[in-house]
Design a protein around this nucleic acid. Structure first.
Length: 280
DNA sequence: GGACAGGTGCGGT
DNA sequence: ACCGCACCTGTC
C-alpha cells in the first residue's frame, strides 16, 4: 500500500465524495472514507491540515483526485466576479474543498445511466451488486466490470440487480462498448463528443453532461437536474424553457461552468434542502 | 397513498 | 422541433 498526503484547504474528503459525482464510496468513520475506482482502492482520512491517502496505486489516485489542478485559482477567480446576490460566492466558499474527480469514462457512463431518475442510496446499491456479480475480485473488494463481461449477460440480469427500467439501457450500452473497445479514443471536446454519448440508449442531455464533466474533465458543461432547475428558477430565472438552461449557464459561467455546477448543486442540497433525507 | 429520486425514450402533434 | 407521458423501485 502507498501512502501520501495533500493539504486540506482545497481538498475536503466528505465534500468531494458526497457531492454526487461518484457512487462507489463508503464512510468508515467520522473522518474516514474509502473509494473504489475500476480495480483500484483508496482510504482517505480527513485531518485538520492534510488529507492522508492510503491506496494501492499512488499515481492512479493523484490523477483520480485531480491533485495537479489549482483549485485555489479557480475559487479566487470565481470569488472575484461581480455577483449581486452573492449566492455563487457563498456556495463556492462553502464548497471549495470539492475536487472534480477524473473518473474512468466507461465506469462513469454506466454509473450515470443507472443514476437517471433515481436516488443516491439506490444507485449505490445497484452499482455495488453490479460489481459483486460481474467484477473481478480484488484484494479490497470487487473491480468495476469490463464492457465485455457486461455484454455477456442479458437484460434480465440487470433487472435482477434492481436496475428497473434502466435494465434494457445497460444491456444495450454494454454491447455497444463491447463491440467498440475504442469508443472513447477519439474524444476531444464537449461539442463533438456529446452527440456520440447521446447515441447510447439511456444517455440523455443530463447524463451526457455528467460523463463529459466527471469522465473527461470538460468544464464547459452544466448538468441540469431537478436541483439545478430549482437553482436556476431561484437565482438565474430569465424565462428559458428547461432544455435551454444548460446552454445559458455554460454561457454565463464559461470555463468554470462544470465546477460551478458542483458548487451550486452541493450547496443547495447540503445547506438549503428541506428534506434532510436525500443526501444520505 | 402520492410524491420524489441528480431523466430518458417514445409516440403524437 | 416540441410537447406530454409512462416508467422500475425504494423511501418518506
Amino acid at each position: 500500500m502507498k501512502i501520501f498526503t495533500f493539504p486540506t484547504e482545497y481538498f475536503n474528503v466528505c465534500d468531494t465524495l458526497e457531492c454526487g459525482q461518484v457512487f462507489r464510496y463508503k464512510q468508515l468513520d467520522d473522518n474516514k472514507w474509502c473509494v473504489w475506482s475500476l480495480n483500484h482502492y483508496a482510504e482517505l482520512t480527513q485531518g485538520d491540515d492534510v488529507v492522508t491517502v492510503v491506496c494501492d496505486d499512488e499515481e492512479y489516485f493523484r490523477n483520480y483526485f485531480d491533485l495537479s489542478t489549482d483549485y485555489g485559482k479557480i475559487v479566487a477567480d470565481i470569488c472575484s466576479w461581480d455577483d449581486s446576490h452573492k449566492h455563487l460566492k457563498h456556495a463556492t466558499q462553502m464548497g471549495k474543498g470539492i475536487r472534480i474527480l477524473r473518473q474512468n469514462p466507461f465506469e462513469t457512463t454506466i454509473s450515470f445511466i443507472i443514476s437517471a431518475n433515481n436516488n443516491i442510496k439506490r444507485i449505490q446499491g445497484i452499482v455495488e451488486r453490479l460489481c459483486v456479480a460481474l467484477g473481478q475480485k480484488t484484494d479490497f473488494g470487487y473491480a468495476f466490470p469490463t464492457a465485455e463481461k457486461m455484454a455477456s449477460v442479458d437484460e434480465a440480469f440487470y433487472a435482477s440487480i434492481g436496475a428497473g427500467y434502466r435494465a434494457s439501457y445497460l444491456a444495450s450500452t454494454a454491447k455497444v462498448f463491447a463491440n467498440n473497445p475504442n469508443f472513447f479514443d477519439d474524444f476531444t471536446d464537449s461539442a463533438s463528443d456529446k452527440p456520440k454519448l447521446l447515441s447510447l440508449l439511456g444517455v440523455g442531455p443530463k447524463v451526457a453532461d455528467c460523463i463529459l464533466l466527471f469522465g473527461f474533465h470538460y468544464f464547459d458543461v452544466f448538468p441540469v437536474d431537478t436541483w439545478v432547475k430549482k437553482i436556476y428558477h431561484n437565482y438565474y430565472e430569465n424565462g428559458l424553457p428547461d432544455n435551454k438552461i444548460a446552454g445559458y449557464l455554460v454561457q454565463t459561467f464559461g470555463q468554470y461552468a462544470g465546477i460551478i455546477q458542483q458548487y451550486l448543486f452541493y450547496f443547495e442540497r447540503k445547506y438549503l434542502q428541506t428534506d434532510t433525507n436525500t443526501l444520505k
